[in-house]
Design a protein around this nucleic acid. Structure first.
Length: 872
RNA sequence: GGGCGCAUAGCUCAGCGGUAGAGCGCUGCUCUUACAAAGCAGAUGUCGGCGGUUCGAAUCCGUCUGUGCCCACCA
């Protein structure tokens, strides 16, 4: 961009007629970073404002959802920075354990290798390489978007410092008895070969087959149904309801389990629903969570029949079969023995899948590490209940409570290689030692570190304080914790938000943030979920290249209604690009006419009604936008700015001021100052959403250093209802005459002789502007009015020097007349209704009276216009 | 099975008790001295159905239908 900032407000700057984002965005961003605008200083006297980035996974590049989230956070932090806060937009990325490991494993697979070919150490090295690459891409995308993050504070969940935080918390929780190791049924992914937590399970309705099996011999038989026949090899009981008379005679007996040569007991357990199926349930404690619970209650044996890959381990003819092969093989074998009493029937049921690879999960008995959540979850719930943390929008609060109030212990160990290794050493005689960050692990023969790594959300849960240097007592921590706001998607409420709440309250004894502002998911233009399999995903870079970052940002902000999903289509980005271009050209025009911010704003008495009107509207807009920002109403504030800028400033104020500017002199100088003011403030207001175009124009207009560090506008309190009313009338007259011209088929540029009767009205001052807008020439000697348009106390008489289309006009007016009459009748009806008058608030009654007045005025106007029509 | 939400103009959505709104799209006329990525004018909705509350309901209540999401130990 041009560097003519010093003299720019004295001479019209040379700006091209079209805004080309690519020319300005990159260099501007680098300049902002170089000048250190985005850094945050713990020693600052300013009040802090902190938002941490929801750390993107280093699994590739950012998608539109990230761009959306970043736009919102950037807008919030840019505004706060302008408001004088010591603002920290903490950047960083997440190692994303299982997700990243899977991505790199897929890369390896392309080379025909598995992670086992490399071994743990080499594999992890390989993931670090991938991290460097992915992280670079992500940072590049963030720069393109214009994110004002403190790059000097960039963090990664597996940095030394953050790893230290992980180890510290683990040790503390271990010592407090909040972390323990236990063998339980967990969700096991036979492809990823790891346990996953309950919330990493995606349930889908799958088509299964229900088979009914007969267990036992002779009179002691019972029929059970199952969709997972292969697990019968591990059955160690049949359970029935204690009150179920059908099976009373069997309770306590042992019956024959087919194919195995074993006998199993029939136990009574209230978990069984006698109404469901046969009322008898096969019990496989090693491969089903409910059965495991039954097993505990009845002291049943747990027999594992599937290995970690889902392959049958039980001895016998089925050994080595995959679980799905085994399923049909076992059904076939049972059929051969006459054990199938009801043929397979289709059965749709909910089946858990790995949220990372979609593989059908296998519930599996396994020794894992757990977090005891009870006290942590209670504290996390209380912090919201007592208002220390606000959830926005509020209707998501219930969902949060439902979760934290009904939480099961959290399985935190993963049988992966990429992640924070569990800081526990196992000794040769079964000893277990948890090692803190400053302690030496036990050495000697037989001591080994636990091979598991932690759930990736363990480290993400520490993010609001681990990024600030915890466990050291840093100045950053003192200044920037708790964070002000957390901006994230509602899909992360359980994975991340609730965990941050638990960890923050536990480790810091303080909430992690004051407000959680949930956003929705970005969808395509038809509201469909974006996914690679639908082929409707968008790389934000493509749209930024085509339309500019500002256009993408504005589109995303404009769609951001709290907590609700955001559909976005390329057409909409185009429309935002058009808006940016409109701002560009309006500013160009303003500067060509000498718009300036130099000198004091003239006092109200020196201003025209037009100037007072726009300043009144400007300040009202400042107030509106501020209120909307404080309520995270991005869509509404973007819309308010769009309409204020485009409709009011560009389409009306600029147009109404053109004659003033052309006339020159003192009036032009005053208007140039007002226009400069309006532009200045409007650009400031728009800057957090569209930082690039506003920065370019604002520095040119004002010669100021940068909008990034400029002051956020305050409502001066200036309002002028009279001027607003006056301009409303001007708009009404202009619109009515334009309508007439258009209906009469006059070309927009065609000049028409006209006589304006404005005497005695405030409109007289606007005659020149109205004539210019309406292409009305002075009435000459042989002026002969062919149409007379009375509007709001004024009359515009036009000489079309020829016949007008009387019928078209009569038709139009007749229609308008009918509408006005209807309006009048409605208003009269209301005002004649005693119940209404008695019960309606005065405000509403006044409104109806106003409506009646308008309708009556319209009737007078339209009747006069009809009367003025030439006879045919 | 439980819970939450949504059904408003062709599309995507605001409005949530007092005359139906926006963006895009559509129609017509214009390169009118910033912008055709523009300007001006215009058309389009018994606000899902049915009941109820109210002086008044797109807005509150009930119910039905359709649709989406979250949670759950569906053998």
């Amino acid at each position: 961009m041009t560097e003519n900032t010093q003299q720019s407000h004295h001479s019209a700057p040379e700006l091209p007629t079209q805004y080309t984002p690519a020319d300005v965005e990159g260099p501007l961003y680098e300049r902002w970073v170089e000048r250190g605008y985005f850094t945050a200083d713990a020693k600052s006297e300013k009040p802090p404002y902190t938002i941490v980035i929801p750390p993107p996974n280093v699994t590739g590049s950012l998608h539109l959802g990230h761009a959306f989230e970043h736009t919102l956070i950037d807008a919030l932090t840019r505004r706060k920075r302008m408001q004088g806060y010591e603002t920290l937009w903490q950047p960083g990325m997440d190692h994303a354990g299982i997700a990243t490991q899977n991505v790199v494993e897929r890369e390896l697979a392309k080379e025909g290798k598995s992670r086992h070919d490399l071994g743990r150490e080499a594999f992890v090295e390989r993931v670090w390489q991938w991290k460097a690459e992915s992280g670079g891409q992500i940072a590049g995308q963030m720069r393109r978007l214009g994110n004002g993050v403190a790059w000097d504070r960039d963090r990664f969940t597996m940095d030394e410092g953050l790893s230290r935080a992980v180890q510290t918390v683990f040790k503390k929780m271990f010592d407090d008895g909040l972390i323990y190791r236990a063998e339980r049924i967990i969700n096991w992914c036979p492809r990823c070969l790891t346990a996953i937590s309950d919330i990493e399970v995606d349930y889908q309705d799958d088509d299964g087959e229900l088979v009914s099996l007969k267990y036992g011999e002779g009179e002691d038989t019972v029929v059970v149904a199952t969709t997972r026949a292969e697990t019968m090899l591990g059955d160690t009981a049949v359970a029935v309801h204690p009150d179920d008379e059908r099976y009373a005679h069997l309770i306590g007996k042992r019956i024959v389990l087919p194919l195995t040569g074993r006998t199993i007991p029939v136990v009574a357990d209230t978990h069984v629903d006698p109404e469901f199926g046969t009322g008898a349930v096969k019990v496989t404690p090693a491969h089903d969570p409910n059965d495991f619970a039954i097993g505990l209650r009845h002291d049943l044996e747990s027999i594992k029949v599937l290995d970690e890959r889902g392959v049958i381990t039980a001895h016998g003819p089925f050994e080595g079969l995959d679980r799905f092969e085994a399923r049909s093989a076992i059904v076939a074998a049972l059929r051969a023995e006459g054990r199938i009493v009801a043929e397979k029937r289709p059965y749709v049921h909910s089946v858990g899948h790995c949220s990372r690879c979609k593989t059908t999960l296998e519930p599996r008995l396994s020794l894992q590490w757990w977090v005891k959540v009870e006290t942590l979850a209670e504290a996390a719930g209380d912090a919201v209940r007592d208002g220390r943390v606000n959830i926005h929008p509020a209707d998501l609060t219930q969902r949060y409570f439902d979760w934290v109030d009904n939480l099961n212990d959290w399985c935190i160990s993963r049988q992966l290689w990429w992640g924070h290794r569990i800081p526990v050493w196992h000794g040769p005689n079964g000893e277990t030692v948890c090692v803190g960050p400053d302690e030496q692990p036990p050495s000697g023969e037989g001591w080994e570190q636990d091979t598991d790594v932690l759930d990736t959300w363990f480290s993400s849960g520490l993010w609001p304080f681990s990024t600030l240097g915890w466990p050291e007592k840093t100045e950053d921590l003192a200044k920037f914790y708790p964070n002000a706001t957390l901006v994230t998607g509602y899909d992360l409420m359980f994975f991340w938000v609730a965990r941050m709440m638990m960890f923050g309250l536990y480790a810091m004894d303080e909430v992690p943030f004051r407000t959680v502002a949930f956003h929705g998911m970005v969808r395509d233009e038809h509201g469909k979920k974006m996914s690679k399999s639908f082929g409707n995903t968008v790389n934000p870079l493509d749209w930024m290249d085509k339309y500019g970052s500002d256009a993408l940002r504005f589109t995303l902000a404009r769609g951001a209604n709290p907590g609700t999903d955001v559909p976005i289509g390329e057409d909409w980005v185009q429309a935002s690009r058009n808006f940016a271009n409109k701002i560009w050209n309006a500013a160009r025009f303003a500067m060509m006419n000498g718009a300036t911010i130099e000198g004091p704003l003239p006092a109200a008495e020196q201003l025209s009604a037009t100037d007072r009107w726009i300043l009144s509207r400007l300040n009202a807009t400042v107030a509106d936008v501020n209120a909307l920002y404080d309520d995270y109403q991005f869509a509404k504030l973007a819309d308010a700015l769009y309409h204020f800028a485009w409709d009011e400033v560009f389409d009306w104020y600029v147009e109404l001021s053109k004659t003033t500017f052309m006339a020159g002199g003192e009036g032009a100088k005053v208007s140039a100052r007002v226009l400069g003011e309006v532009l200045d403030v409007t650009l400031r207001l728009l800057h957090p959403i569209v930082p690039f175009v506003t920065e370019t124009l604002w520095t040119t207009l004002t010669g100021g250093e940068s909008l990034v560090v400029a002051e956020w506008p305050a409502d001066s309190g200036f309002r002028d209802a009279a001027a607003e009313q006056e301009i409303a009338v001007v708009q009404q007259v202009v619109t009515e005459v334009r309508r007439f011209r258009s209906d009469q088929g006059l070309q927009p540029g065609q000049k028409v002789p006209a006589r304006l009767e404005l005497a005695g009205t405030a409109l007289a001052a606007h005659e020149a502007a109205m004539r210019s807008l309406l292409r009305l020439q002075p009435a000459g000697e042989e002026f002969s009015a062919t149409a007379s348009l009375p509007v709001a106390g004024a009359t515009v008489a036009l000489d079309l020097s020829g016949a007008i289309d009387v019928e078209a006009e009569r038709k139009r007016l007749t229609k308008d007349l009918a509408a006005a009459e209807k309006e009048k009748a409605q208003a009269l009806g209301k005002l004649g209704n005693e119940a209404f008058l008695a019960k309606a608030p005065e405000k509403v009654v006044d409104k109806i009276r106003g409506r009646l007045e308008t309708a009556e005025a319209d009737l007078v106007r339209i009747t006069a216009q009809l009367a003025a029509l030439p006879q045919t």
